[in-house]
Design a binder for these strands. Sequence first.
DNA 1: ATGGTCGGCGTCCGA
Length: 271
Amino acid sequence: MRFSLTTWNINSVRLRINLVAKFIKSVRPDVLCLQETKCIDDAFPLKRFKRLGYEHIALNGQKGYHGVAIVSRLPFEKTDIRTFCDKLDSRHISVEFGPGAQLARPLVLHNFYVPAGGDIPDPALNPKFEHKLRFLDEMKSCEPLHPRGEDRHILVGDLNVAPHENDVWSHKQLLKIVSHTPIECEKLLAAQNQGDWIDVARDRIPMSEKVYTWWSYRAADWTVGDRGRRLDHIWVSRALKERVSDFRIVRDARGWERPSDHVPVTVTLDL
DNA sequence: ATGGTCGGCGTCCGA
């Protein structure tokens, strides 16, 4: 069975619902994980997704900020929401696919929106950065998150960290820029190494190659100098590594009308 | 060049 999954920080799902529809009609992933939906669950464009064929929807929204959602063509068995750092922020949702999706073995999917962390890369001066570092520590220590042995787990989302040198346009120039500081890169990789995770992008694209999924709004022309960062990630458990058949980043989406600053990232597996 | 642009909400905050 072919299973495809997209992660996309949409930066307001209501404002960009037509862009989401455009993407869905072209790529038709089985499952779409959204971050920064920026709306309460009652305001989520449920009917539009159902008309597009995505009848199974799990929401963790809040007013104005953050918000994550999983919209799916395949039914799932259960939904779970975790909180981090004793805050009620909507930054996580997970679902488990099973018999309803014709899967003999369970497939657990986590969708994350990690705090951006503000501008000052010093946890003593910037509470937002301190929160981000604590969030990453909690991701590491959260045992149920991490796959072992034959577990089939996928973790996706806007992790707001570009951990490797070629995950940013200039490693040297971004060492003191939040998203690429050594301390947060170490913490994200420590969380990744806590489970049997494979970073799909770096499993398929050589470390020497630049890979980005985000380009700032604060540039007159996002294509000039290609100053991107790889903030959006897809991890699969080791048991799924050899089942990955495709991985793609729809870079073009950054040039669509009124775009998100993030582009969709898609993985395909043969289950 | 040490600012620049977004979206949601409400007259700023978080990104």
